[in-house]
Amino acid sequence: MIEIKDLHKSYKMGSNSLHVLKGINFKVEAGELVAIMGSSGSGKSTLLNILGMLDELDEGTYTLDGVPIKNLSETKAAQYRNKFLGFIFQSFNLINYKSAAENVALPLYYQKVPRKERQEKALQYLDKVGLKPWASHHPSELSGGQKQRVAIARAMAAEPKVLLADEPTGALDSKTSYEVMDLIQKINDEGNTILVVTHEEDIAHMCKRIVHLKDGVIVEDKKVEQVRADQYV
């Protein structure tokens, strides 16, 4: 599903150049649930941004579902993001003047899905994350866990090939974190490919594979026995 070869990325900071990713080789098959771990500054967010086509790579190749991702125009990148990727952010990033259902329907709007179908789909995905009764509520009326579940529904609504989650539990207490992870695991069980960036060990162990980043290189890449989150819920 995802294939990265010899990926390099550096940032220019004034006259200095900060080499963040120093040759990453990385492959994700369809249906995997991968945790990307590392301390801050290890380059894990940069990697996720490149995977999410929010940032461009300097060197190397990136292939997503057989499509080479390189030198995309902003418009093309937007279309690919819409088609291939679903984002889950640490701070949820819901649009606060839109109701939960409208938030979920937003990626469908950019896919030019007709209005009626959009609303049906939004409700369907809200139902999936257990928030159908909250469909008309605005984000300010929802708890943190609920917000993240709306965000997950939004990421799923466009039916992307890969879900990218950047510290999805970073802003949540541990009980809610497990609820969110439980949801992510269930989505994965249905065959969806998910990448989770985290620095929390217990969250990482709820995935099926852990990739450790340190100073811009992968230091460890291992399959783990998945800890089911529902036992903590």
């Binding site: 999410g52 929010l54 937007a78 279309q79 984002f87 990033n93 649009i95 937003l106 950019y110 466009a158």
Partner: peptide, 16 residues
């Protein structure tokens, strides 16, 4: 800024 960023991440083209 943030909202527009979210929209872009969700697939809004610069033109839109």
């Amino acid at each position: 800024t943030k909202e527009l960023g979210v929209r872009r991440a969700l697939g809004a083209t610069p033109r839109e």
